[in-house]
Design a protein around this nucleic acid. Sequence first.
DNA 1: TTGACTGCAAATGCTTTGCACCATT
DNA 2: AATGGTGCAAAGCATTTGCAGTCAA
Lengths: 139, 139
Amino acid sequence: MTAIDLEQKCIDAGLKMTEPRKVILSILAHATDHPSVEDVYERSKQEDASISMATVYRTLGLLDELGLVYRHEFSDSDHARYEVNSEHHHHLIDLETGKVVEFKNEQIEKIKQKIAQDLGYELVECRLELYGKKLKKKK
Amino acid sequence: MTAIDLEQKCIDAGLKMTEPRKVILSILAHATDHPSVEDVYERSKQEDASISMATVYRTLGLLDELGLVYRHEFSDSDHARYEVNSEHHHHLIDLETGKVVEFKNEQIEKIKQKIAQDLGYELVECRLELYGKKLKKKK
DNA sequence: TTGACTGCAAATGCTTTGCACCATT
DNA sequence: AATGGTGCAAAGCATTTGCAGTCAA
């Protein structure tokens, strides 16, 4: 999803397209990692030094509510990290470097559904995170 | 795991078996839910009104380090919730009531392993939580 | 005896909010 | 012009910590 797409979705949702919001949306659209609030704040300041932390928190909160962004709370760090909500996937976190690898798996999606159903529930959300250490290549 | 088992493991780990710790271990051993720090504190006070919140935090922290207890951070609430670390399982959280249902699934265990391996990682930890709404029984 | 443990209260650190001013619509 | 958005600084809140007294071993 591009920055323009995000801007349009915000406008459609009735938000005013202010300067701070444009900057934040652009940063999120271009991020290749999963930045924390602090990260977004730092990067925003490079575009526009007057942006405040409060605005970053408020904006990310709004985007999360609108479902445009996904809020992660990986257990290897203690603050939230964000990513633009695009295609459904899960994460593997490198315990040594904190690097996040994304993956998809059709089989797991099916089993999740089935487990929830068997327990008498409709699956609404799901959190699946793997934490691991890089394997040393053998030989 | 009984309270006695937990006490023994703590002693083996070199911890002194004090009154507050006995109370907290007993509460954890008897809990059928996944109590928050606050919950453990409230329940502890009924056994011994002099126990402080700080001690509950410190004790739960120690137990987590020793691996005797598992610290959850379900995304429907914002504080940590604990359970005695017994058999490996995952959780489904009822989004309407907050109720936690435990489940196991062999298939998922295998797929998790395989995914990590395929990505070049050794699986160390994992978090799998389903969030859902109770299905209405049809007819 | 003595080092670990505890309660208390103060400190922390991330996040939220009240308020007055400002900008988008 | 009206309303929603912003920066700032203060407030919140769960959790942690310094300290002096206490207790298990």
